[in-house]
Design a protein around this nucleic acid. Structure first.
Length: 808
RNA sequence: GGGCAAUUAGCUCAGUGGUAGAGCGUUUCGUUCACAUCGAAAAAGUCGUAGGUUCGAAUCCUGCAUUGCCCACCA
């Protein structure tokens, strides 16, 4: 038997095994195999997230524990990686990197070139990081959301939805980001709590200008956009005002006074200013009562001619100026400090407005119940995460707007006839198309015109990433693999339940009337030591590459296996150090085992010694429990289970109790029993640790393999341990436990007497009815360095049936 | 305002009805014979709080408090 080197050089060896896996195609999906497939839908990271922190490392490795387990269970693993390299996140990343503030100074073509160039760079960084983490990805399955196939599938999806009448092209007030200058979907928003002021402003009655109408608003800059005042129909203070007209201060437009039950009489003065459009309530009233439209700002959030004197200012600048003016005219009665929650664009934190543009919408509001039903058919791990999905569906107010007025993304496969405005779509076989570069093949079917206007908007990035199961199975492509759809497992973090997860369910339901996957596994966040979310802006993280350099990736993976599924996990360097300690321990214990595995018969025969039977029976329990935990995606409990078996039972106790037989060459039978036991335990410990610690287990496996050629090429394609019922032995397990209790008591006694553990003691007297304990005496005597062990009367009670006496 | 989760040793967490657990940290002791990147041992908790169910509650139920998150409100 070969032996391990004196020390384990983590960095060198980890890289060596990563290359080994690559060269031997260990993680390759087998297209021709008959084995059951386990396919994984894993998040394609954005090009904008080039800064990789432990949170990313955590979620991807947690997913991977399960994948490695399934691979060892005999599944044909389909584990691809993708890069989400189209759309707004990438575009913003490029704008920031190249300081492009004014898009008119760069051509669309040049800009897209920059995006492609940057995504390539970022993909390189990611690939090397994923590899250094030891992720068992089949890199030949790599996909990119801007690739021709992903574009084609996205456009196919668009055409299919159009055919099924699930798309609408309509002009309406849409959530708008004035910083990114694009329309957004509800899912692109997040909350931001801000301090503001509620301003009490006097309007006047049109028929009697001396009569003041006091309203309260937090958005005085929208006075120019005011189109009506509203009161509650039951508010006796204002009943007589309904259907009269008011005059807006500064801008002097006359606006109607209307009533609506949604107005809260207790808020402010009970008189509400309605504008074009301050919030979704304004939009609702505008629609219902067909109010006038006074859109006072442009796409970039600057005021236009409606705002008269204030034209050219931003909304924020105008607020200050208008407040000054109101004060000057004594129309500002008072200001109250308030804290309110604004919707901001999640990517740039700009408060969103409403803007009137023509957008493509995917209808989702009509089918919420279908999506709920689909959601309940999925197996959620953990189940509590399903609540977030249902809550999101309950709160949906808008259809899914998929138009983004941007440059870089999947183009819409759409032209409009210049003359009759007919919507012209390409044939499926011609996809992907870029309507700006390509032209329709035939004249307009309605008016025969040959002039077309291309749709210049690009699709929401989620329009493509919601199709990852379809992209992976090459949906409706020549080489479609129907076995890959639906996929087995989706793995992702909880904050994209309302986007990636939801939209993927929508697409699969609309296209295939099916679920995209059977199981969903939701991971938590990586937090910093204080429990704050790790983020770029806080700067509270260290690059993953540095941590790997210091401790190796197995150690980082050990940390990552520390949280229960779905829970957040604090990053503590001490825990990575613990991982490194475990690796060292595993290395040293294996080195010990390897010393005794030469030229020996490594199979169990009938002459199994009792302490050997004890540890082998315990091993069966460990296999059973660990397997169950991994099956339930409970990798952290699995880790703990193997850890305890290895460190406590095997290393601390079993090795000590069997050592003397291993060193003693005279009694071959005694030695063989221990050798076979060591081998079986070691192999199974390695296998059970392999999903979490792939490198160190491979290192030891390969050393074992040098003399056991029948072992598989890599531990990661070896078979997952199975219980050997012959080795379950409750009687020996119970007796062995008692022996360990005695050993522990002896250690305690020695420690209290400040004695070294290898110091001899005179005698252990065992007070028990169980005479079979005697068969353990030789091993116990060697482990405790007791000169004699005998039955007799004890004075230390260890449990109901066992007393002992220790004579130093 | 609605919902979800958490609250256990100094720290980070595990523990879903049967005598409180782990790792780290602290203290003490111990190295020829796998491992000082180690081993052994000790100290340390009225399990957030107030009630209830039960022979028995960290665990089940109810109220409250604190923290985090999700959603809604956004005049």
């Amino acid at each position: 038997m070969s032996s391990l080197s004196k020390k384990y050089n983590i960095l060198e060896q980890e890289q060596k095994w990563q290359q080994f896996w690559d060269q031997n195609n260990i993680y390759k999906f087998d297209q021709t195999s008959q084995k059951p497939i386990f396919s994984v839908d894993t998040p394609p990271p954005y090009a904008s997230a080039a800064h990789l922190h432990v949170g990313h490392a955590m979620s991807y490795t947690q997913a991977e524990f399960i994948i490695r387990f399934k691979r060892m269970q005999g599944y044909n693993i389909f584990y691809p990686m993708g890069f989400d390299d189209n759309g707004l996140p990438t575009e913003r990343y490029v704008e920031q990197k190249y300081k492009i503030t004014d898009k008119s100074k760069i051509s669309r073509e040049e800009f897209i070139k920059l995006c492609l160039q940057e995504t390539k760079e970022v993909a390189k960084t990611y690939t090397s990081l994923w590899k250094s983490l030891g992720l068992s990805i089949d890199w030949s399955l790599l996909y990119s959301t801007i690739s021709p196939m992903a574009r084609r599938i996205s456009q196919k999806s668009f055409l299919d939805l159009y055919k099924k009448n699930l798309l609408e092209h309509r002009e309406e007030p849409t959530i708008w980001c004035s910083s990114c200058q694009t329309a957004l979907a509800q899912a692109d928003l997040e909350d931001s709590e801000e301090k503001s002021k509620l301003n009490y402003i006097n309007f006047s009655l049109a028929t009697d200008k001396s009569k003041k109408l006091l309203i309260a608003t937090s958005r005085p800059e929208l006075l120019a956009a005011c189109v009506a005042l509203y009161v509650n129909p039951d508010d006796s203070r204002y009943k007589n005002l309904i259907n009269q007209k008011a005059i807006v201060p500064i801008f002097h437009q006359e606006v109607p006074i209307k009533s609506d039950p949604s107005v809260d009489p207790k808020f402010g003065t009970g008189l509400m200013m309605v504008c074009t459009w301050g919030d979704s309530e304004d939009v609702a009233k505008w629609k219902k009562d067909k109010l006038e439209t006074r859109l006072i700002f442009d796409k970039s959030g600057h005021l236009n001619e409606w705002a008269k004197l204030y034209q050219g200012l931003t909304l924020k600048e105008a607020r200050t100026k208008i407040i000054d003016k109101l004060q000057e005219q004594k129309l500002l009665v008072k200001q109250e400090d308030i804290t309110h929650v604004l919707n901001v664009h999640e990517r740039c934190k700009t408060p969103v407005e409403f803007y009137l543009t023509k957008q493509w919408f995917i209808k989702i509001l009509d089918n919420i119940e279908d999506f709920k039903r689909q959601g309940s058919k999925i197996n959620w791990f953990p189940l509590s995460m399903k609540k977030k999905y249902d809550t999101w569906l309950d709160g949906l107010k808008w259809d899914w707007n998929i138009s983004r007025e941007r440059y870089y993304g999947v183009p819409f496969p759409v032209w409009y006839c210049d003359k009759c405005h007919e919507i012209i779509l390409p044939e499926e076989k011609d996809l992907p198309v870029d309507p700006i570069e390509n032209k329709p093949k035939n004249p307009c079917p309605k008016c025969q015109s040959n002039n077309f206007i291309p749709e210049k908007d690009v699709m929401d990035t989620w329009m493509t990433s919601s199709l990852t199961p379809q992209i992976n199975s090459h949906w409706q492509e020549e080489n479609e693999n129907k076995k890959l759809y639906p996929m087995s497992l989706r793995i992702q973090a909880f904050e994209i339940i309302r986007t990636w997860l939801f939209y993927t369910i929508v697409k699969s339901w609309y296209h295939e009337k099916s679920l995209p996957w059977q199981d969903v596994m939701i991971s938590g966040h990586g937090l910093d030591k204080q429990g704050r979310k790790i983020s770029k802006s806080l700067g509270n993280y260290e690059p993953v590459a540095n941590i790997i350099k210091r401790y190796g990736s197995d150690a980082l993976r050990y940390w990552s296996a520390g949280s229960n599924l779905g829970n957040n996990l604090r990053y503590k360097e001490e825990e990575v150090k613990d991982g490194k300690k475990l690796i060292t321990k595993l290395f040293n214990a294996s080195k010990f085992c390897l010393m005794f595995l030469q030229n020996s018969k490594l199979e169990i025969d009938s002459k199994l010694y009792p302490i050997d039977a004890w540890i082998l029976s315990k091993l069966q329990n460990t296999i059973k429990t660990t397997t169950r935990y991994f099956n339930d995606y409970e990798y952290s409990k699995a880790k703990k289970e193997v850890y305890n078996f290895f460190w406590k039972n095997f290393a601390d106790n079993y090795i000590e109790l069997s050592k003397s037989r291993l060193y003693n060459d005279e009694n071959k039978e005694a030695k063989n029993s221990a050798q076979a036991t060591l081998y079986i335990c070691l192999i199974n410990i390695l296998k059970m640790f392999a999903p979490i610690l792939p490198h160190i287990t491979e290192e030891i496996w390969q050393t074992l393999k040098q003399d056991n050629k029948e072992l598989e090429t890599s531990i990661h394609i070896s078979s997952w341990p199975e219980i050997d019922k012959k080795l379950i032995n409750e009687k020996q397990e119970n007796l062995g436990d008692q022996i360990v209790e005695i050993l522990s008591e002896v250690r305690k006694t020695k420690s209290n007497a400040n004695l070294a553990m290898n110091k001899d003691i005179k005698e252990i007297i065992i007070d028990s009815k169980e005479k079979d304990l005697e068969k353990f005496f030789p091993d116990l005597a060697n482990a405790t360095h007791a000169q004699q062990i005998s039955f007799g009367t004890g004075n230390l009670k260890l449990n109901e049936e066992l007393k002992i006496k220790i004579i130093l």
